[in-house]
Design a protein around this nucleic acid. Sequence first.
DNA 1: GCCCTCTTGTTCGAT
DNA 2: ACAAGAGGGC
Length: 741
Amino acid sequence: MTYLNDLNDQQREAVLTSEGPVLILAGAGSGKTKTVTQKIAYLIQERGVSPYHILAFTFTNKAAQEMKDRVEALLGQSVQGMWIGTFHSICVRILRRYHDCLGYDGNFSIYDRSDQLRAVKETLKDLNLSKDLFKERSVLGAIGTFKNQGIGPEACLDPTSSNFYDEKIAQIYKRYEEKLKENNAMDFDDLLLKVVDLLNREEDIRTYYQFHFNYFFVDEYQDTNPIQYQLIKLLCPPKPNLTVVGDNDQSIYAWRGADISNILNFEKDFPEAKVILLEQNYRSSQNILNLANKVIAHNSNRKDKKLWTDLEEGKKVEYREYSHSQEENKDVVNLIIQRRNKGYAFSDMAILYRTNAQSRGFEEYLMMEGIPYKVVGGLKFYDRKEVKDLLAYLSLLSNGKDDLALARIINTPKRGIGEATLGQVQAYGQEIGQSIYEVMEGLEENDQLKIRAQKKISKFVDLIHLLREKAKTKSIPDLMETVLFETGYLKDLQEEDTIESRNRIENLEELVSAAKTYEEEHPEDSLEDFLSSLSLMSDVDKTEDKEEGVQLMTVHGAKGLEFPVVFLVGMEERVFPSGRSLDEDEDNLEEERRLCYVAITRAKKELYISSARNRVQYGKTVANLPSRFIDEMGEDLERVKTYSSYRMEKSPSLEVKSYPTSPKVSLTGDYKQKPKEDPAYHSESKKDIHVGAKVRHKKWGLGMVVSLKDKGKDQEVVVSFEGKGLKKLLLSYAPLEVVSK
DNA sequence: GCCCTCTTGTTCGAT
DNA sequence: ACAAGAGGGC
């Protein structure tokens, strides 16, 4: 194997240690993927291992694809049959095969976060719990935490120290699980949980897989959670040929249950484990690495590890402080143009930020300059209403028990079947153990349930029947078009004929063509396969890399990627590190610091860091100090004066006030105007309004003013009307006249 | 049941 | 700033 010569000593050792457990502690840019792919190629070519017996977990589908491609390139042959994918997609594969043992149908739906929130919401309604007391998000967070640790609804309550809230959470968890089961649906966590459950319970299946797979790989091991760890343990025989790769300094998913002790305890879990350290970095210049090392050294809970490189020192990392985020937006775009003129392609550059909402300002200026760019994640295509609607139709066609999907589209387009009707049917279905759609199907022959909208429901059932028939013969993209046509969905949008509706039609067309592409690539796959692969795609998976353009993404999204030029923006206290991490404990801050380390180590040649004193957030301007991470970088940072930093030095207090806070750019050219106040409403008599005054309202008749208070430019007046009760009105708009003082 | 308007929460990150 | 949800009128 001549290619082994490309490897350094540690990498080669990792490749050649083919038997037994191996932990590869791989620093950022240390050739981790290269090592793993060479190891797989080595196993197949030199050790005669069949790809069928290799199981590899990656973090994204894209990473899986890349690994597969690289192995094939090394071998010059296809490695079809190798099990490589994310934890979730591999679990789906197992579940589609053994769903029977879990009491699920093979066409189960997969619920994403927004589906989960809807399910929690319904659960709260079922249990009659106030959603002021039980916030959907925190309930879901609690359930997720249990699931990530493999704790079921029965086990989640500690009987010795439970309180009202914990008991209710346990109840909600239980009902939520039942609901998903009734809908023949699983959420993301379930995909792992159910497989663990299956393997725990069914010895045959466990033994089958333990014998089937001989070599195991886990990428990004520092980000595995307890349930993933259990899964690995269950699939592996006692002395596994298990190679895990990770970097404890890049653990950035504690918030979704990742347990850093998985990597720290690997040697304890597998006593014969060999640990190999990859510290030589092939990606970044020395200056960039120094900065990364310096920042991460401030963390206490870590294994010391220092990246070094043979590469040149490179350009110093630059830091710019702006007075306002808009200025940052603009200047970064200027820098991008400069870099481009120096010979970098736009696609060589990336803007990395802490939160998705920060992309907007950069997009505006990029667009203005006509620079191609791509936003990874954020406002997601697959989260758009019309996309979710069409997919909900497909889910319902595939899985008739999916009440959530049905509820989404039963009245879209309008069919005159509203909430009341739906509630009736659902309640009845609950009683007799049927899904909403099943009840609807049998409604005409049903004497017990009388529903006013029965005719409308029958029409809907006929429609679904028709579509199901078509689904049998048509390809997925054809089926989509049929759904859009037969339901009248497309017609409604066409008739609406607004900028928005045209946009929605375009999105639907894009979805149809995505289905076409999928079908070409996976000609054998069913509708269920298509739907699940859509739900399991990560943001990075969804972006095609062939297009040219500046990449915009969160630091989380940039994990595992690299760019010649990186702009790390918004380095401010309460932005990065995030406000919430500062309000909580030290562990959170350390995770933010690791995140910062990840961001820095994405850069190969040039890194530009920036912060803004003032930033528009939630629609208003807030002031923040530069991030503590900037201080921690110290001398290694070259502080470049900006126009505003120069001004700030001179008169910092003035500057904050003088910068215009109103957005000056509008890309559509349609500047929003505040509605002008109509002077006609300011009749003379209104000036006499005071608490206690008798007034007459056009609609409500006579009443008395109870209170009066300023609200912006307007005044809010509360009037008690005879027989009608209290009404809150805005003085300038309400058709009121004073009857007597 | 539908539509309009006002309120509320979002923005920490994501399979 | 913006979207989704709630609430009330029709």
